[in-house]
Write a protein that binds this DNA or RNA. Sequence first.
DNA 1: TCTGGGGTCCTCACACCA
DNA 2: TCTGTGGTGTGAGGACCC
Length: 415
Amino acid sequence: MSRAPRSAAARRNWGDDESGTSILHVDMDAFYASVELVRRPALRGLPVVVGGGQRSVVLAATYEARAFGVNSAMPMAQALRACPQAVVVAPDHHAYHAVSQGVMDVLRSVTAVVEQVSIDEAFLDVAGARRRMGPPTTIAEHIRTQVRQRFSVTCSVGVAATKFVAKLCSEHAKPDGMLLVPKEATVAFLRTLPVGALWGVGERTEQALARWGVRTVAEIADLDVATLQQMVGKAHGAHLHDLAWGRDPRPVHPGHEEKSIGAETTFEADVADLAVVEAKALELADTCAARLRRAGVVGRTVSVKVRTSDFRTLSRSHTLVSPTDVGREVFLVARRLLAGVDLRGLPVRLIGVRVEALSRAQDVPRQPTLDEAVDGPGRREAEVAVDEVRARFGRQAIGPATTAPGSRLSVSHVR
DNA sequence: TCTGGGGTCCTCACACCA
DNA sequence: TCTGTGGTGTGAGGACCC
């Protein structure tokens, strides 16, 4: 589902020396769409788009749909104009997680040094698996065969000396392929690519560089660092220069600690009634807190994000004296922050609640808050009980009265 | 034309403190 | 007491990634 630009010139044989290439990047091909095709074989060969309602974007598209110009992250309405005959399938994240877990198990059977980056991609360092399983490209083919046989979906694998280059390789190997770039060929490979291929160059940076006439990775590499820093900023400039020369010392990190947990939603129609926005904030705070508890973490900073009908995005945050995983506490802060946002009289398109500055719950002694004097000491216990009810009977079984179906404040949202 | 949701990281401004 | 400076924490917002 990567959106990085590719180069036809980069997709060729760069040699077969695997001695310095122990990093693999495994990337599932059109992942959500592929899983849907396994579940609904009748859709094979058709342009299939996975996404939500009219105001959502494309989450994944089959290669048949991509032939019409449909891409991930494209607004749904635009995708349907480009390909009116597309079959739209609502996402089923549970199904995708199940396949993802299976694929990650395959990867961990190769080596313990697996860094899962997202639901559909991971890095592996196979240096320690060579003796047992053979050279990296043999391991890559083993992974591709296992994934295809066990889950009926395909993946592409990049093999290189660094994470960044391995990732570019898998992009250029798509779909259902493998690309090796030997260590010595790294710089030559990178020089064939447009600037947008570099990690950290999105639309804005690309435009900024184009204003200086810089359009390729080769041009970035040939600039001196100070000039590049003048164009895009100090840290960013140094980072891009390193990447352009194939310098990426980041190791493959198994395990991952979350820095924040949040939830946000776009209303199906913009909402002018602040009470409705607050009710949604309560639901989101509740969702966040439940996820904090499930992850065994607490957070100190609560932030809210509001997008108004003119697509302006505003955020406000507040840091608490002691961290929390209680939905009521998160909501009270969120509500206060929300009240301080100047909406300029515009209706709200999106509302989000996020909890940051996380630490492990077991490391933090929990302080009773002022609210507990009002709500009673059992607030957290009550929310834990709600977690248990939901675990047994589902998410919809219990929730805040204001967001219950039939409540005036209950409104539908995109997903 | 119409722009999701869940994240991370960076920059800048400002307050506070030593 | 005043001023300058540097470190740190906080808050807002932008850009980017999948």
